[in-house]
Design a protein around this nucleic acid. Sequence first.
DNA 1: TTGTAGGCGTTATCAA
DNA 2: TTGATAACGCCTACAA
Lengths: 354, 354
Amino acid sequence: MEKFSHLYRFSQRDMKKKNITIHDIAKKLDITASTVSRALNNNPRISASTRELVKKTAMDLNYQPNTMASNLRRGKGNTIGLIVPRINRFFFADTISGIESVTTPAGFNLIICQSNESFAKEVENINTLIENRVDGIIISVSGETRTSGHLKKVLQNNIPLLQYDRVIDELDISKVVNDNFEGAYQATTHLIEQGYRKIAHLAGPLQINIYNERYEGFKKALGDHKIPFRNDLVFKGVLTYQFGRDLGQKIFELEERPDAVFSAGDFAALGLMEYLKDSGLRIPNDMAIAGFANEQFTEYTDPGLTTCDQFAYEMGSMAAKLLLDEIGVEEKNRLTKTITIKPKLIIRNSSLRK
Amino acid sequence: MEKFSHLYRFSQRDMKKKNITIHDIAKKLDITASTVSRALNNNPRISASTRELVKKTAMDLNYQPNTMASNLRRGKGNTIGLIVPRINRFFFADTISGIESVTTPAGFNLIICQSNESFAKEVENINTLIENRVDGIIISVSGETRTSGHLKKVLQNNIPLLQYDRVIDELDISKVVNDNFEGAYQATTHLIEQGYRKIAHLAGPLQINIYNERYEGFKKALGDHKIPFRNDLVFKGVLTYQFGRDLGQKIFELEERPDAVFSAGDFAALGLMEYLKDSGLRIPNDMAIAGFANEQFTEYTDPGLTTCDQFAYEMGSMAAKLLLDEIGVEEKNRLTKTITIKPKLIIRNSSLRK
DNA sequence: TTGTAGGCGTTATCAA
DNA sequence: TTGATAACGCCTACAA
């Protein structure tokens, strides 16, 4: 019997565990909740003495403000929603880091969702964020996303929306993007300047803007240097390591091999390079290779892989700053801005003729 | 004048833009808000017909449930807080991905904070999450964290807390960890079995549990194979690429060089390997190298780097599942569980004697 | 099956 | 400078 009563006491205590509210503080100090609220929020219309007293009491009672209540009352939650295709891609992880470095100090929470490159999941994510009444949304769209109805819904709900990296162009909203065209142009030009003339291109899905832009930059660079564009040297697919390896075989067996390859992604470039190395070709002497994204590993491959750095962390922090700016401004006064970040060509030995 | 009045209309409309509530739906259908609430929440105590009607009307009116209100009323926000040292480390990015893959389908939002390896920032993060009344917190502590007062505060607030990877041991709470001891033991044993006898160790800060465990595993493996432990072959520091390079020089110039090195981190292992290669040593013939973490690049270095995979994604998803389990259980009935995941030794050419 | 009523904890407005 | 009051939108006993 003894031990049961003891259990009972415990469960009683658990049930009763109530959070301290501003009313508790008010009661203790014999003032009203409004005063407590004002004191805690550093409202100027309050005497310094009560402010201090309230704060001290709050500490003593181990008071924790209830953000949910405050959110409801003020009609906003100081939260930014973020949707990315995948968190564990280095580029996106880096952008997230940059975003967080801005949002948290500014007093915003960051809710992160990943679409896993699925349009349906992205729509779900959007709905969740709208229901949570986030103060703004930053998105880099999934590989499947072609339409923007779900994004328009965000705007209809009067939530500032900002796109970055992968964007849908039909929307009149701010964005932070990489100058993919310029990056591809530079990389291709670099290959040409190194003396390569028969240059192939591994292209990502051209419906995704970034890959299309890189493709166009590639073509432009050829044209500007009077090198005929050859469609048979463009290979399209999802730019994975395996895709690169498979293409390596195809390219290796070509009657008339290209002397250089510009891949719109580093993983495919790597797969390609490894296959060719395994097949006995020397990089870059027999074939030069350049990638895109400056993935972490590109520095450590043998030879080092020439690629384009996208300043991911900076893209993230700029996107966050831009969004916070928009949140602070009346909708009708918002300007549509596009920040384009110029990528930097990182030249390594995979393309450098000795 | 014409255009001003038109502007005025717009601003009027903006001011008035009110969100649809369950009361609006109720009014339109001439029923009460409670009924609407029940219909929307699939409460069984309601007729199928009204349920459908309500849902249809909600759609028509473009109703968005107000999660903040619902949260306040129910006293919980369906939110999980996550604190990691850095989002843009591949290991953590991967764990986050795993966590998200569990929390979102379960209907929880994920608020992510990074401590940037700073204890002060970690304390701030904790406070924010407590104020937000998150339903649970998952944390991997910063490199500076030695005390657990801030974590105890979480428990005092009756918020389930779970540690993973880097943990503070003085707390009686569940955790998901890597078997660092075992991983290090395996890696070292592998080197010994390959015939190496004079094995050095690059150790991380030993105050951080994971590095200490790896250090102990290393020592144990030596002992079990009757190889004397030599303190002068243990090098401590923060395991960056540069640290590895610098140590490469030091080790290269040693009168009596080790014939193998086990590094508690991949980046330092890489720096070391590059320095030694540049100095003309052949890996693994002149010196074998093994790392820890299975960073993405380890597969692509030349030679490939032997390392330990930690199943980061799985660690994340297990941590999330475990936490959600605890959230569903009364505090007094919660069990303290430790899930230890055995790492997998990935043997590559950096340690494989031909 | 539906309605009534009250409150979650906070803050804004008005009044004193 | 402080107090009284109401409302943010939703959910849930309890009543009908």
